[in-house]
Design a protein around this nucleic acid. Structure first.
Lengths: 178, 178
DNA sequence: CTCCAATGCTTCGAAGTTGAAGCATATGGA
DNA sequence: TCCATATGCTTCAACTTCGAAGCATTGGAG
């Protein structure tokens, strides 16, 4: 049970510097995302999620499965089904069967999809440059990319969720102490 | 640079380093936010937005207006009205009139609200520490906070939207061919 | 004082998002 | 082979979110 104080070790008292960095990180990204969303809607009639999906498909080499896509953009599966429906109806992607696995659906970007990405990307870059890169020195940019790459890799490497241990016959709960 | 070339041509070709830093930033924050959301729901039964609102109220000294709150968390006004309704119904905040301005509504955090923040904050910090700070050196953390602070301030300082110039007697629209 | 625009908040309708449940295919052990 | 479980995707209902429209108050210009 996560008792009130989730464990001794006494949680380290909050480090103001850490908390501050975390809060300002989230705030800045929120602001940025908001602005970017405006630009994408105005110039391409798509949402940020849709742009991310298309960009990932356009950048990669081949088609991706629904799961890979959802994982890539940190999105719910059902949400992706919905978005894929919209994008397909708009003629920006196609969904087809996977010869190797009949359960899977392969998503492929169409020419129109690529064209749309190419059309909005310059403006997109321009907005991020104005908002994100303008106030940063070249050094900062490098450092930022480096830092966030490490954080990303770290999180991706962690157990996907709270480890779904339903494999063996091991009783799922109560791993006992230690 | 920002010589905004409205026409597609002439926009600086995409700088892979910039684009990469931007993408990984957004991806990492998405992952982080997702995990944080799980923790908050599990431990406190609240969403990330609700936590942000309560934290802001708990941290500040006095009550805030709806607009100040919405601005702070980068949220739509109507969305905030909705969330404030939920939080008030849950007894975590109260809404009252502002003696100085009858249009405004002052939001105050209740004892229960403060208690909830105090209860979830340690776990919250723990999660962010594990996901965000663990892979970072002390130096990185400092740098990150510094960088994002500059970015945040930069964006906050920009014209809120596409400059709403309705102040002076300048005819807002239809300048009638000057 | 009297308008008129600006500001603060809420209501409303449309669209997006999510987790759980459901269906179909895959896989591995008995 | 057969079956239980895992995996991939979709459907469904509930909830959340946003922008536009609406109402009330404020402030400044005439």
């Amino acid at each position: 049970m996560t008792d009130s104080q989730p464990d001794a070790e006494g949680i380290q008292p909050l480090d103001p510097a850490q908390l501050g960095a975390y809060f300002v990180l989230m705030e800045a990204v929120s602001l940025l995302q908001h602005q970017v969303e405006q630009q994408l809607r105005a110039e391409g009639g798509i949402t940020y999620v849709q742009f991310q999906l298309l960009a990932r498909l356009a950048h990669g080499h081949g088609p991706l499965t629904m799961t890979e896509l959802a994982d890539g953009v940190v999105y719910s599966r059902s949400g992706l089904t919905y978005q894929a429906g919209l994008l397909e109806k708009a003629g920006l992607i196609t969904r087809g069967p996977n010869p190797d696995d009949e359960r899977a659906t392969l998503v492929t970007i169409t020419g129109n999809g690529r064209a749309l990405v190419d059309r909005v990307l310059p403006g997109h870059v321009q907005v991020t440059r104005r908002l994100l890169f303008d106030p940063l020195a070249n050094d900062d940019l490098h450092h930022l990319g480096d830092i966030m790459t490490r954080v990303r890799d770290h999180m991706r490497a962690l157990p996907p969720r709270s480890a779904a241990p339903r494999k063996g016959h091991t009783t799922p709960a109560a791993p006992t102490a230690s």
